[in-house]
Simulated assay, not measured.
Amino acid sequence: MKTYAFAITFLSALTFNFSGAQELKLTSKDSVVTSSWVLGLGYNIVDDSATPVGDDLFSIKDTWNALPYPSSISIGRFFKNGLGIKAVGSYNKYDVGKKVDGAINTVERDYYAIDGMISYDLNKIIGETGWFDPFLQAGAGYSDIGTVGRATANAGFGFNTWFNDKWGLNFNTMGKWGIKEGSTKQLQHSAGVVYRFGIEKELSKKGLEKLSLIEENQRISDSIAAAKKAEEEARLMAERLAQEKEKARLAAEEQARLDAENKRRSDLENKIKDLGNVYFSLNSSYLSKPYKELLDKLAVLMEENPALTLKVGSHADSRGAEKYNQWLSEKRVKQTLDYLIGTKGISASRLTGEGFGETQLANECDNNTYCPESKHKLNRRSEFEVLEF
């Protein structure tokens, strides 16, 4: 009994894991930025005490020089292989009383520096995280301190931490050794905001593993689906063969019915067409005697075909204002309907009407075209459309 219960539990867990895997989807978290441009803006601190990595390393009050506003800017290009190149410009001030080059500074001095650095992303060794990028950097630069310049060889380390694909923070420390004999060394720390652009992304290692699992699950799912499809197709084929004969019979009957219906519609439309349209005089909705006789014949046709319903569409010619012509066409359709319903006794449920103004001219006689009265008259009409029969 225990063995049986264990088997059921195992199979349930397996089914749950498989169905859960089936729902795996790649998300933005499965991709990492592999190359980009990075623009940075931040603060810098300079320790130029002559022994910045010795006893004075943490003598912040005595040796660190900093400004209360952003004082460094950088632009860099970082590549898929982990290498990056960066240019950094910074400004600072050496305060009076700070230790500089091993002595107490007695005059406030401006500090300018420009540095070119090559970096290597340590994630290429320790593995991508997507949000934390430690790096090593080395390069060269030039510092101008109170009009005294020095070329430096630089090396250091730092890291970026990213809030999303574009925005993050940068922290780094860089040692600067004077190349000229007798020059002292500096230690420059910086922290700031960084912005990535020109981004290229690829799947991370975990993303690739997830993609592989998704593809494997899809392969299994496709195999199962293919087997079910083959079985279903065989069943449907048997049903289809049985249904085709019946379908053919029903199709023949339906076609015969449609042919008869279409012939009847065509006959009715031809009879209505033979009666013609109702035409009106200029600026009039009055039904003259010939067109009352036409409507009398139409009423007889509707009495002979009790299921026949019609739509009356009335129109105006293009002369006159559009609003007036719309109003006039609506009067014409009302006059036509009133005669058929009120005079001839046709049920109102079998008739609908719509006035179209001058929007559906029967010929070229628009506002920009001269036409004789004989052509304009063809547009002042009520015509009839079969809706149901």
Rank of each mutant, 00 (worst) to 15 (best):
T3Y: 10
A5I: 12
A5H: 11
N17Q: 10
N17C: 14
A21F: 11
Q22M: 12
L26D: 09
T27D: 11
D30G: 00
D30P: 08
D30V: 04
S31W: 03
S31I: 01
V32F: 00
V33D: 06
V33T: 14
S35C: 00
S36E: 12
V38Y: 00
D56C: 02
L57P: 04
S59R: 03
S59C: 07
K61V: 10
N65K: 07
N65R: 01
S74R: 06
S74E: 10
I75P: 02
I75Q: 02
F78G: 00
F79N: 10
G82P: 09
G82T: 06
S90T: 10
D95W: 01
G97H: 07
G102S: 01
E108Y: 06
G116K: 03
M117P: 05
Y120L: 04
I126M: 13
E128I: 02
P134F: 00
F135S: 06
L136S: 02
Q137M: 14
Q137I: 09
Q137A: 09
A140Y: 01
A140W: 01
G141K: 00
S143T: 00
I145L: 10
G146Q: 06
G156Y: 08
F157G: 12
N164S: 03
K166L: 07
G168E: 02
N172D: 14
I179M: 07
L187N: 08
H189D: 11
V193N: 09
G198A: 03
G198C: 07
K201T: 15
E202Y: 03
K206P: 03
E209D: 15
E215V: 08
R219Y: 06
I220T: 13
I220S: 08
A227I: 12
K229C: 03
R235L: 12
A238K: 14
E246R: 09
K247D: 13
E254I: 07
A256P: 05
L258Y: 11
E261A: 00
R265K: 14
E269T: 12
N270H: 11
I272T: 09
N277A: 07
N283K: 13
Y286T: 15
P290Y: 05
K292H: 00
V300Y: 08
V300A: 10
P306G: 06
P306S: 11
K311L: 08
V312F: 01
V312D: 04
S314W: 04
A316T: 15
D317R: 02
Y324E: 11
K331L: 12
R332L: 02
V333R: 02
D338K: 05
D338G: 00
Y339R: 01
G342W: 03
T343G: 11
I346Y: 06
L351V: 13
T359V: 06
T359H: 05
L361C: 04
E364V: 07
C365L: 10
P372I: 10
S374D: 14
K377W: 09
E385H: 09
